[in-house]
Simulated scan of single mutants.
Amino acid sequence: MVTRQTKSGRGPASTAYVSHVLDACGFPPRMIRCTRLLDLVTTMDPEATMIYLADHVDAGRLPER
């Protein structure tokens, strides 16, 4: 999401900004994200699902070093 602050850098839009943008629809960002994940899983696109989840790696699923 590109905002005035993010267009000049590499950081993500703030949670407060995204929440405010979504106020009118009545859904929190987490619900929209979960719905998107469900769609990716049911369409059997595992690569897209992994790309989408790459920022949240469950340490319990990583192999032992």
Score class of each variant (00 low, 15 high):
P28N: 08
T42H: 11
S8L: 11
C34P: 00
I51Y: 06
G11D: 15
V2W: 01
A16D: 10
T42E: 14
P63L: 04
G9K: 09
R65W: 04
P29T: 02
L38I: 06
T42V: 09
I51N: 08
M50W: 08
P46M: 08
M31W: 08
S19E: 10
L40E: 06
H56S: 13
G26F: 07
T6Q: 03
G26A: 05
S14G: 15
V21C: 12
M44F: 12
D55M: 07
E47P: 01
R65P: 05
M1F: 13
Y52H: 09
R10F: 07
L40F: 13
I32M: 09
T43K: 14
Q5C: 05
D55Y: 06
C25M: 14
R36V: 10
L38S: 05
P29G: 03
V57K: 08
T35G: 03
T43P: 00
V2R: 13
M31A: 13
R4Q: 13
V21P: 02
V41I: 12
A13Q: 06
H20L: 09
R61G: 01
T49Y: 11
L38C: 04
K7I: 10
R4E: 13
L53N: 04
Y17D: 02
I32P: 00
A13V: 14
T3G: 01
Q5W: 05
L37Q: 10
G9A: 06
D39V: 12
S8D: 10
D23Y: 11
Y52S: 10
V2P: 01
Y52V: 04
R4G: 14
M1K: 07
A24V: 12
L38V: 07
T35R: 06
R65V: 03
V41Q: 12
M50H: 11
G60V: 01
P28F: 00
R30N: 03
A48E: 08
R65F: 05
A59K: 04
V18K: 00
R61A: 03
P12Q: 05
P29S: 02
R4T: 10
L22W: 08
L62K: 03
A59Q: 03
T35A: 13
A24P: 09
V21S: 02
A13G: 07
L38R: 08
M44S: 12
M50R: 15
S19T: 14
R36A: 12
I32Y: 01
H20Q: 12
A59I: 05
I51D: 08
T42I: 06
G60M: 04
P46A: 15
I32Q: 03
D58C: 07
A48I: 00
P28M: 00
L38K: 11
Y52Q: 10
L40G: 04
G11E: 14
A54S: 15
S8A: 13
R36T: 08
L53T: 08
H20R: 15
A16Y: 03
A13L: 04
D39G: 10
T49L: 13
R10Q: 09
I51C: 06
M31C: 03
G60W: 02
L53V: 05
P29V: 02
C34Q: 07
Y52L: 06
T15A: 14
S19Q: 14
L62C: 06
T43R: 15
